[in-house]
């Protein structure tokens, strides 16, 4: 087990290097000089040279990469070219705001998804199965930015129950009921996709396991339904966990559209702003840090899975 975990951890090093290479290469995807993004075309040559030197663009590409990597490795993400402030502080605040939504959304989505999937799987081809499957397919097919708009229309415009946009007055972690009311719609919207995806997987896995011989043996042994459900779900856990890890990562990285609709000051909105301001250091840092999280989540899920299921360690 330890060996497996160690190998898995070592394996993330080249992955992270690759990620950093792509994130670094992003700005060089642009045809021409990356400085074209920062400066108007009529900028005087002295200014261009000065800025070139300031951002290190006068160095060869590989030196630029290693300098950048060295800084990122010690947590220095550079300064925003738009505000001049350190990217790190902006990103920490934005990321924690995203987590405030992503964690409850993940918990809600996973719980509902497991419940719906299990109920559907154990009641195959009944109306319960059909209803649960219909909910699940709506969840996976829903453009979540549209879900966000519809929820605002329903609960803010028509019913006037919940605030339409923005974060509560405290900012950061919710401290009052008002803060919580601001979270309800975004969390519910974000939970729809993981709910649908997990539910479909759990249903399929339950059906598959139910068809295996050992469940027939359990039934033959005269085990009560509750115990059989327990055994089936335990076997369905590893694949579901792998998917949950991925889904949580998508919640962090994919919240940009939902954050835009709800005007939520999270990492998605930061990235959106960076794109429209052409603020490359912010964009790069957001991509690197979010992907770093994503890799770490998948790593921990892999190790956890192996701890539960000895077959994976082979």
């Amino acid at each position: 087990m330890l060996v497996y975990a160690l190998v898995r951890i070592l394996y993330t090093i080249p992955i992270l290097l690759g990620v950093s290479l792509i994130a670094f290469g992003l700005i060089h995807l642009v045809p021409g000089n990356p400085l074209d993004l920062l400066l108007p075309p009529e900028a005087p040559k002295e200014l261009v040279d000065q800025i070139k030197a300031k951002y290190g663009f006068d160095q060869p590409l590989y030196i630029q990469y290693f300098t950048w990597l060295g800084r990122v490795a010690v947590g220095d993400l550079g300064n925003s070219v738009f505000t001049g402030e350190p990217v790190r502080e902006q990103l920490i605040s934005a990321l924690s705001n995203t987590l405030v939504l992503a964690i409850p959304a993940a918990v809600l989505g996973f719980a509902l998804g497991i419940f719906l999937g299990a109920v559907a799987g154990f009641n195959r081809d009944t109306w319960i199965d059909k209803l649960a499957s219909a909910i699940a397919i709506t969840g996976v097919s829903m453009p979540h930015y549209w879900g966000a708009i519809v929820s605002v229309i329903l609960f803010s415009v028509i019913l006037n129950w919940l605030p339409a946009t923005g974060m509560g007055p405290s900012g950061g972690l919710p401290q009052s009921w008002e803060d919580v009311t601001h979270m309800i719609l975004p969390v519910a919207t974000l939970s729809l996709i993981p709910m649908g995806v997990i539910s479909r997987l759990v249903r399929a896995t339950v059906l598959e396991i139910n068809g295996q011989e050992f469940t027939a043996a359990l039934r033959g042994k005269g085990l009560r339904r509750k115990r059989i459900i327990y055994h089936v779900l335990k076997n369905a856990a590893p694949p579901a966990m792998a998917l949950m890890g991925l889904q949580f990562g998508y919640l962090l990285g994919g919240s940009i559209l939902v954050e835009t609709v709800y005007n939520w000051p999270g990492s998605g909105q930061l990235m959106n702003l960076a794109i429209f301001r052409r603020d490359i250091p912010v964009l790069q840092a957001t991509v690197v840090v979010l992907s770093f999280f994503f890799v770490l989540i998948n790593l921990s899920v892999d190790v956890l899975q192996a701890a539960i299921d000895p077959r994976i360690r082979r």
Partner: peptide, 24 residues
């Protein structure tokens, strides 16, 4: 496959938005 693993390390929406954001 190992090259693909690197691309897998990005959440898909994030990668699409980042590439599109940079390319214009």
């Amino acid at each position: 496959m190992r090259t693909m693993d690197v691309f897998y390390a990005f959440p898909s929406v994030l990668l699409a938005i980042a590439i599109c954001g940079v390319l214009g």
